[in-house]
């Protein structure tokens, strides 16, 4: 059993080794900062040059926008399940529905986004093709609602009853109690769950690949097309070799580091909450 546990160590070491060793070519060619800060992604043989900046910006853009869109809905679901209808039958129905939402594969979200949401954006006259940052963040937002809401639900429902009764006994209404007692008490946990959801959004691949429009430059706005770190890998890995392959793997390494850091922060916050 100790040996089995040791495999996790080997696995992690192997992961880092694989990513680092296969991305050194790109980092050696362009330099670490040079690779990260360069917005050019040009595969034409004569002017071949690769930089990650466009995709880093595209990733941050879509992920934060998705977080923004999902916020009111996942907070509502968390309050619905963790406070207003805590322990009621209707809350377990909502929970099951949200769980199912989490079970739908990314590629089906992509299909649905392409065939059902994209025409909506075109009809609204926002964008001729429909593809872009806006479309992918809307679908991403729906995809991360389950992650953001299920953890926040736990933290909101963990607010001790004696604090709530204390607030009510001073004459508070339910919303005043929630605003001044429940939410502040559960705030670190809620923040942690949104950070985890952000981590999900950053790494989400298929749906974004199908919806973002796949252009290799810094998106100029909400309605512009772009690429995220995950989507450029998914899109171009198949036909890549040499320095391009190495650059794609380097983007993978960066994505790995970013998501690992984000998860780490969320875990640290939750550990602090658990101890308090």
């Amino acid at each position: 059993m100790f040996f089995a546990a040791f495999i996790i160590i080997l696995l992690s070491a192997g992961i880092i080794f694989a990513l680092v060793s296969r991305s050194t070519e790109a980092f050696q060619e362009y330099g670490i900062i040079g690779f990260i800060a360069n917005p050019e992604w040009d595969p034409r043989p004569a002017t071949e040059e690769y930089g990650a900046l466009s995709f880093i910006i595209g990733t941050i853009y879509t992920a934060f926008l998705a977080l923004l869109f999902c916020f009111p809905f996942s907070l509502a679901v968390a309050l619905f399940n963790g406070e207003y209808f805590k322990g009621k039958k209707i809350s377990s129905v909502v929970r099951s529905v949200v769980d199912l939402l989490a079970g739908i594969p990314s590629i089906v979200y992509g299909l649905w986004g392409f065939y059902a949401v994209r025409p909506l954006i075109i009809d609204l006259g926002l964008n001729a093709q429909g593809f872009g940052i806006l479309l992918s963040s809307v679908v991403l937002a729906i995809m991360i609602i389950p992650y953001a809401s299920s953890l926040s639900t736990e933290f909101i429902s963990m607010v001790p009853n004696n604090l709530k009764e204390g607030a009510y006994s001073l004459g508070a209404t339910q919303i005043e109690m929630i605003r001044f007692i429940s939410l502040p008490t559960a705030s670190s946990g809620i923040v942690a769950s949104y950070i985890l959801a952000l981590g999900r959004a950053l790494g989400e691949t298929m749906a974004v690949t199908m919806l973002i429009g796949n252009t290799d430059r810094i998106p100029k706005g909400l309605l512009d097309t772009g690429n995220t770190m995950a989507s450029v890998i998914a899109n171009q890995f198949g036909e890549a070799d040499g320095i391009k392959l190495s650059s794609l793997i380097a983007i993978g390494l960066l994505l790995f580091i970013i998501t690992a850091l984000i998860n780490l922060v969320a875990k640290l916050i939750m550990k602090r909450v658990a101890r308090a």
Partner: peptide, 13 residues
């Protein structure tokens, strides 16, 4: 006004 069995000052305040 009510005072409870378990002291319950609001921990975030």
């Amino acid at each position: 006004g009510m005072v409870f069995q378990q002291p319950n000052p609001f921990p975030t305040m």
